[in-house]
Amino acid sequence: MTIEEIQEELIDEFSMFDDWMQRYEYMIDLGKSLPLIDESLKTDDKLIKGCQSKVWLHSEMKDDKVVFTADSDAVITKGIIAVLIRVFSNQKPQAILDANTNFIDEIGLKEHLSPTRANGLVSMIKQMKMYALAYQTQVKN
């Protein structure tokens, strides 16, 4: 599936809920199914700065696609990362770089997008795009 298709799918899923509580509960559940980062990779250099909770993000290239794994010590944060990983993992670097994040507004998580918000959703997206950029540069060379 392309990034756009996955985003559409998420918008569809989240539109089933009437209120924020159901949305959050669903997101927390998504967090539980997150492909966990290997314990040995939970090092300080994998931590994303700007989060009040700890977020570790790891990436690797498999074939020509970027695969992300991550974890957090807070479950809402974990849910947010799960959503991001579903969108961005297993995609080509250029597709990750080209993707917009408007879907976050549409699934009702807009309040987490503020750059001053301590959960660091913006930092997570930035970090994922940074990895994609790094791999993209490698591919070109």
Binding site: Y24, Q52, S53, V75, I76, T77, N119
Partner: peptide
Amino acid sequence: IHPYDIGTIVDKLGIAVRTG
């Protein structure tokens, strides 16, 4: 439970507390 998670939920209910 992480304090940040509690702070996020109670904020949705109109309650301002500090976490961290």
